[in-house]
Write a protein that binds this DNA or RNA. Structure first.
Lengths: 197, 197
DNA sequence: GGGGTATGGTATCGGTTCGATACTAAAAAA
DNA sequence: TTTTTTAGTATCGAACCGATACCATACCCC
């Protein structure tokens, strides 16, 4: 038997290449590159602690200088908005503009992926997610970068009541929808790293 | 619950980005780009029906012109060898040179991945492989490109005896090791697309 | 056969990405 | 206050990458 972990790496690479082609196809209509699509998708999902150029750079595995250029382009096209952080004036906050949101909802970069996965049971998807998530966690352990996981599966995320959550890392209240976004400081609960087989 | 297929896409993208950074790190010592590492890894695994520039282009999701340039560079560096096909003189065959093999075995681009996955059980890896494989298969169905799977899991691969296999697509004999390589014409057996849960 | 078409590969061009470096401004530390 | 660290930007050059054009070989059809 071929060493399975390498096969898995191969599949991940290939899936990424296929989606990269898809993103290129989608972006070409607007003159956007695959990396721009990825950036927009990240901003769609990043929570309010993670919507900065630095976080995006770490997420994409690129240097901040490189990402800065891409953001400049997205800003010129009116797809994102940049504004200064309220407390730390060095920090730039990013969000999708109306145009950016409209672009994403019209071009739906994940549509092909949705189609390709529609016949896979929720259980199988969930299982694979847990496996890949643990690999991401390990990889970034050796890499030094932040893990970027969903807020609600984080050890710092505590449920206070039906609708109120609390992040003990940032010490701030979170709404329900917020806990479903991606956070750069996320540390996954062990239950989400090793799901029973 | 956040829509899980999209989470899966996110993880795949992120894993690919992490490995891309790793490939960049590894390649920088030799002045190679991530795409060159990917090409070398592909050539290490491609079987004798799939070791052409065209196949590599489809595998990477790039145009043949683009890939031709990368191959030129790898050839100049002495990492690969190019030779004419015996029967179809338009076709160029590719293989790793001794130097190329040495480079891969020394730099071991997959080492980090191996480390990150060492604590994941073979069963969980196998399960995830089957899920991702079916997504690749679906994606390329809509994309038109070849699927690129492992020969031994192909409907055209028939076992004749202990050591002899036969490909009913190309109509040629295959050795045991050959059936563990990657083929562009692979059509997965259904058993490898939907594994029981 | 022979002419048209399809296919695999290369060459060249220009636009874009990307890392490296240097720089500014703000925050944190000493 | 001075020094150091951190977030972000600007600039430059190398490389990727797609588009187009082109060549050689193979295939098809009359």
């Amino acid at each position: 038997m071929l060493k399975n972990p390498v096969v898995l790496l191969d599949l991940v690479d290939r899936l990424a290449n296929l989606m990269r082609s898809e993103f290129r196809r989608i972006g070409s209509e607007e003159g956007l590159q695959p990396v721009h699509i990825q950036a927009l998708m990240f901003l769609e999902q990043a929570n309010r602690f993670s919507n900065t150029p630095q976080a995006l750079a770490e997420y994409l595995g690129l240097t901040k200088g490189t990402v800065s250029q891409s953001l400049l382009l997205l800003d010129r096209r009116g797809l994102i908005e940049r504004y200064q952080d309220e407390f730390d004036k060095r920090v730039v906050r990013l969000r999708l503009s109306q145009l950016g949101e409209a672009f994403l909802s019209e071009s739906t970069p994940a549509a092909l992926w949705q189609t390709a996965t529609r016949d896979i049971s929720a259980n199988r998807v969930r299982f694979s997610v847990s496996v890949l998530r643990s690999i991401v966690y390990e990889l970034q352990n050796y890499n030094g970068g932040p893990p970027f996981g969903v807020c609600s599966t984080c050890i710092y995320c505590q449920r206070k009541s039906q609708r109120i959550h609390h992040c003990t890392w940032f010490g701030e209240r979170l709404s329900g929808p917020e806990t479903r976004k991606i956070c750069r400081e996320q540390v996954p609960k062990t239950g989400y790293l090793s799901v029973a087989e």
